[in-house]
Design a protein around this nucleic acid. Sequence first.
DNA 1: AAGGTGACAGTTT
DNA 2: TAAACTGCCACCT
Length: 110
Amino acid sequence: MKSDFFNQVYEVVRLIPAGRVTSYGAIAKCLGSPQSSRMVGYAMNAAHGQQPPVPAHRVLNRIGMLTGKHHFNPPESMQTMLEAEGLTIINDQVQNFKNQFWDPAIELEF
DNA sequence: AAGGTGACAGTTT
DNA sequence: TAAACTGCCACCT
């Protein structure tokens, strides 16, 4: 059993609806550690091969930039998957990021 | 066992 | 205004 912290992150990420994106900080905050955003990113690093798969491509930094695309295989698949969900990505940045933002702290409570 | 790293974010200079 | 530093906590060497 991995650390529950990671499992929490995976669960939240899997709840992200298609066509929506969120930030590491939002997830970290939802878990109760708003300053532990790095841990969320690190959890994503271990998200490879998780069951069910974790849509890590829907998790971006606070500015909507595909910072972790380099960790995908191939890296360009991240942008491809996001575009397939209806998102517009230019220069590794999600357009209308604020409009597509999905805040777990709000959506989950709703 | 201890130190260093990291897919970030917020604050300060 | 932009750039740089610190904080955070688990994983890896």
